[in-house]
Simulated assay, not measured.
Amino acid sequence: MGKIYERLTDRLRDFISAQPVYFVATAPQSGGHVNVSPKGYADTFAVIDDVTVAYLDLDGSGVETIAHLRDNGRITVMFCAFSGPPTIVRLYGTGRVVTPHDTEFDGLIKLFGPHPGVRSIIVVDCDRISDSCGFSVPFMSYDQDRTLLDEWAGRKDVQQKRDYRARNNRESIDGLPGLRAEETDPATLRS
């Protein structure tokens, strides 16, 4: 059954890197809605060290994760096996938002593959790393990544991306602040 780890072992790193999808969960400090977001593209997740991970935050219809992290920092990232041994890995911790305006962005962006719609990088300092059985998780086969998000972002010029982010990413569904006005500008660097 489940086990708690002090760090990301080689076995856990291998498991994480083999999963084509992962899930990110956050919630506001009080009241409001709990958010769970599925994430894809294998090259959008990176293990930085034994207790720190990061992922690319790509353009999306909402800004819940950014708003919740700025509200309280709490985050859980979950990986589950849809093939092979039935395993679930959860990374609990404190997340922070690194935008293209932050000095560490240029160093972090190099950890990821090329994507045109990068809003930020979410860095998670893990304070609990655990695995558990995935006995009830169904077997499903992976065919390929959907390229629609990259294609959509690739068709937008700078002003269109700015307008979209200003319209959809300035606050969460519960009214918490999301992207600040100066953060709606698309990154001039592609990952």
Rank of each mutant, 00 (worst) to 15 (best):
141 S>E: 12
157 D>G: 12
108 L>V: 03
161 K>H: 10
13 R>T: 12
16 I>H: 10
190 R>C: 06
73 G>F: 03
9 T>H: 03
6 E>D: 15
134 G>P: 05
18 A>W: 02
142 Y>W: 13
12 L>A: 05
75 I>H: 02
43 D>S: 11
72 N>R: 06
33 H>I: 12
127 D>H: 14
11 R>F: 12
34 V>G: 00
147 T>R: 10
148 L>M: 14
120 S>W: 04
41 Y>F: 14
182 E>L: 09
20 P>V: 02
137 V>S: 05
10 D>M: 04
139 F>M: 13
3 K>S: 11
59 D>S: 14
176 L>G: 09
74 R>W: 03
101 H>F: 15
102 D>R: 01
121 I>A: 14
6 E>R: 07
71 D>N: 15
53 V>S: 00
189 L>E: 08
114 P>C: 09
151 E>F: 06
68 H>D: 15
37 S>E: 01
113 G>Q: 07
24 V>L: 02
94 T>W: 02
43 D>R: 11
157 D>Q: 09
188 T>S: 12
26 T>L: 05
184 T>E: 09
141 S>Y: 14
78 M>P: 06
116 P>L: 05
7 R>F: 13
122 I>F: 04
61 S>D: 12
34 V>A: 05
189 L>S: 06
98 V>E: 05
178 G>K: 00
178 G>D: 07
148 L>Q: 13
52 T>I: 06
126 C>P: 12
91 L>H: 01
2 G>R: 07
179 L>H: 09
75 I>N: 00
22 Y>K: 03
191 S>G: 15
152 W>C: 04
138 P>L: 05
146 R>T: 08
43 D>P: 08
39 K>Q: 08
114 P>V: 11
115 H>L: 13
157 D>H: 02
